[in-house]
Design a protein around this nucleic acid. Sequence first.
RNA 1: GCCGAUAUAGCUCAGUGGUAGAGCAACGGUUUUGUAAACCGUAGGUCGUCAGUUCGAAUCUGACUAUCGGCUCCA
Length: 648
Amino acid sequence: MQTKTTISVILKDGSKREIPEGSSGIDLAKSISNSLVKKSVGLVLNDELKDITTILKDSDKVEIITQNDPRSYEFLRHSTAHVLAEAVQNLFKDAKIAIGPVIEDGFYYDFEIPSHTLTPDDLMKIEKEMQRLIDEEQQFIRVNINDTDKQLSDFKTQGEKFKAELLEQYKNESPTLYILEDRSGKPVWNDFCRGPHLTNTKQIKAFKLLSVSGAYWRADETKESLQRIYGTSWWSKEELDTHLQKLEEAEKRDHRKLGRQMDLFSMHDETGPGLILWHPSLAYVRKQMEDYWKDLHEKKGYEIVYSPHIAKTDLWDISGHNEFYRENMFYMTVDEQDYVLKPMNCPFHVLIFKSKRHSYRELPIRMAELGTVYRYERSGVMHGLARVRGFTQDDAHIFCRRDQYVEEIKGVIQLIDIIYKGFGLNYFAELSTKPKDAIGTKEIWDFAEAGLEQALKEYGLDYKINPEDGAFYGPKIDFKLKDAIGRVWQGATVQLDFNLPNRFDLKYTEKDGSQQQPVMIHRAIYGSLERFAALLIEHFAGSFLLWLSYKQVIVMPIADRHLEYSEKIYNLLKENNIKAVFDQRAESINAKIRDAELEKIPYMIIIGDKEIADNVISVRAKKKGNLGTLQTNIFIEQILKEIKEKGI
RNA sequence: GCCGAUAUAGCUCAGUGGUAGAGCAACGGUUUUGUAAACCGUAGGUCGUCAGUUCGAAUCUGACUAUCGGCUCCA
């Protein structure tokens, strides 16, 4: 069977390599080095992920993916999902399989199991069965489905209605089946799947099932309700442990947990779900956020406005909310008149603009409001401060001329940059363009998208494009924030709106006397103060920067005889507008320190006989420990400087 | 809203049909302390709500409310 014919493939570095015709990816790896074979997982073949066993053709572009390559997890996790499905079908005979894709850091598989409702206890049993299948060293074999009709009827006989539906959908796209074979070469399980996969289950070294939950077939709530199992899979036990530690760390930072522990906020049955009570410590964080925001906005030429919480439905009829946003709004009737609790601030700002005539000279007009809005969220989706029914937006609307548009967007980007830096947050930008169902002419969309892009470029900000992901009324830039443990949060949005200026027939008088429609930009930087506070809590793990801390310094006398001197220091701090507290309890100094550390108070001042004798204070920093003694006035100077500079 | 789980003291949690518990916090007292927990005591609960089963319910059943994990990732 030896063939003399060779083919030539192009490797990642652009070099060409001669290999015998009929060689697979594994053969290619072997021809390069034996150590490569061991670590090889799959291929990028002509820019597509493919099985390592794929037979190569002349002039293919081939890259061998090893375990060091992040893309190798696609193979691993997808294959682990298959083993999960096989295990579930072994344990629950009437289980039917739906889909099992790879997700960030893991995978899931959806099942319909009429006879059984999965519980967390089942996960251990399933894991055990999975391990048994892995130890059996089953082979993944890819076969083309040549006789679609036969396969369809096979799926139907087996009751695999979801697989049948999928095959029906993909039957013209050279469908493939992955078969798992035991060591004797007997097929033991199969799944209709595009792949790619590993070659053998023994390559699965470290996995864990994480949770069960509900899901719908095809994410459609009118379709079958399925049971979903989430899991994760890694190349080594160490990697898995690191990942599990990361999950644990995230749990420790959970703002709902810290919110209770640190007395930051609460929610009550009596108020209803998704409605937040801000306790003093988090209210101070919010006050600092608001003051910082107002100060910068005034400096940047915004004018602060206020609008009411409710308005007659007439307003929402004009704005279109009553028609398009209906299911998110709270309605009430007073004096036989229907009112709406505002879900957005924009119609009010539009009315302010419309309340008088504007000259082109007045533009841009920048209107800003910390406006509290209410949106009906479905009962199952509320999440601490991050997803609520009542929240305050840091909203602003810019009305400008077309020739001012790009500059205005640049101004917004700059403001976002300044504000996020004040919290020490990193971010990145995404530009979303015209969706399929959009209002407005192509001309105006082109103008708007080009303007957003130009502003990003001129500002020098890197961005990714999300095609067709804009709002129906205009394109947008989203800013995503990255927290201390690498999670991404939705941050600022900048949107262009063609809808409201039209609906409200907004105009200004141009130089030539003509009436023109202004360009309207919506933007929010914190997004919602509630969600941004949640981000800050989790980012700092409750250990806020000094300028955000409700308690900045705690004064702690060692014994009662130090109370008088301590009180003088405490008063001096207060006189200097430092948020100081005084621990007068008859506790040991160790207990006081422990409590202050747990409360995450940035600075502790310890006063005993020595400090009084030398007329100094002992300073201890949260987590850092004893900083030694200082003159009180020097400490005050330093701390005021740190507050002013926001400690970045 | 849907699928599933959970709900006991301010917090974290034990208690599976027979008199409601612990630790921390709170409060009172003693202690006067040198860089992450001094000691003793006191008080605190219609066991989420409402109904049912039972001689008897925190415990079993049902409804409701709230919270938690998901319902966006597509062979």
